[in-house]
Amino acid sequence: MSNQLNNNMIKNSDISALAANFREYIARNKTEEERDQLIEDLTSRNQDLSQFAYITSHNLRAPLSNLIGLIDILNYDLLDEYNKKIVDMFRDSADKLNETIYDLTQMLSLKSNKDIKIENISVSRIFKKVCNSFTKQIHTMGIYLHTDFQCEMIPFNKSYLESILMNLMSNSVKYCSENRPLRIETTTRLDEAGNIILTFKDNGMGIDLLKHKDRIFGLNERFHNHVNGSGVGLFITKTQITSLGGEISVKSEVDKGSTFTVTIKNIQVV
């Protein structure tokens, strides 16, 4: 009798364990199915969002370029003061939209570029190209530019370096001091470890690092509300640099200026 009871207890315990294992298996499979479905939904939404942003940016770029071109060829001197103000507002709005589209395109490029081409590029040539985009500001504002490229050739991505220097230059121009002419110094050199150090320094408004140090390279972060900006330039800059194994840091002091230091691995390019 006791043996039969023991056998029944063993059988019941086996059934209970089997049932528990089966319930756990069902729950685990359900969780995995839900996770897979969530990943599929997020992937699909991300693709739709990227496609929408890509189409929007490209469809807006052509008419926007035409609008900016028409504003530029407009005979501004023939307008009265009222219409000059209207044209100035048109120009400001067009510039803001152009900057937004540029930032959007850069962020899409960061997400889509899985295989980024690295080549030896001339930093002085890229910097000259960037300066050409700011010819008007350089002359009207009397910007002083100083360069010292001890490392002329840099192993980097060409479009990334142009974007990085463009963002840094744009920030220097936007946040220049009203008390002195803008001075920008751009240099390259080798450090003790053989890495390439690119330094971009200005004497502009500067940033209060005690308040904003942890937010400098964040997305949609702005530190001077009286100047128009999207707040994504430094985010894109850091993302581009770190995606290639580099680093960026900043030293800044209010009303004295900012210095951005970019460390680039001095790799051999085949």
Score class of each variant (00 low, 15 high):
I86Q: 05
V232Q: 09
I55D: 14
I196W: 08
N46I: 05
F127K: 02
I26E: 05
R183A: 12
I264T: 06
T188V: 08
I264D: 06
D255C: 11
F156Y: 02
S112E: 13
M166N: 11
I184D: 03
L145G: 07
I10V: 09
V254F: 04
Y54E: 13
G194I: 06
E152P: 10
I164W: 01
N59M: 01
I68S: 08
Q51D: 13
S177P: 01
G233C: 01
L190G: 09
L165T: 03
R45L: 13
K96T: 08
R35W: 00
I55H: 12
A19T: 11
D14N: 11
K251V: 07
K114A: 07
K111G: 12
R180W: 01
T56V: 03
T100D: 08
R222T: 15
D41W: 04
T199K: 01
G229Q: 13
S65K: 03
K213I: 12
G245S: 02
Q4D: 15
M9R: 12
L161D: 09
Y160N: 08
F156P: 07
F149I: 07
N203P: 02
Y102V: 05
F200G: 05
E32V: 03
M169I: 06
C131N: 14
G246I: 09
L18T: 10
N167M: 07
G231D: 04
N46R: 10
I164G: 08
D48S: 14
G142I: 02
H224W: 10
I15T: 09
V173G: 02
V254P: 00
F235V: 04
A193I: 07
T43Q: 06
N7V: 05
L97Q: 05
T188K: 06
R215T: 11
I196A: 07
D14C: 00
C131R: 10
V269R: 06
C131Y: 02
P181D: 13
S177K: 04
L49N: 06
I101E: 07
F52W: 07
Y54F: 02
N171C: 08
S112Y: 07
Y54A: 12
L244H: 02
N113Y: 02
K251C: 00
R91L: 13
C131W: 01
G69D: 01
E34D: 10
D77A: 13
K201F: 03
S124Q: 13
G194P: 04
I241G: 04
D41R: 12
D255K: 14
N29G: 08
T237K: 02
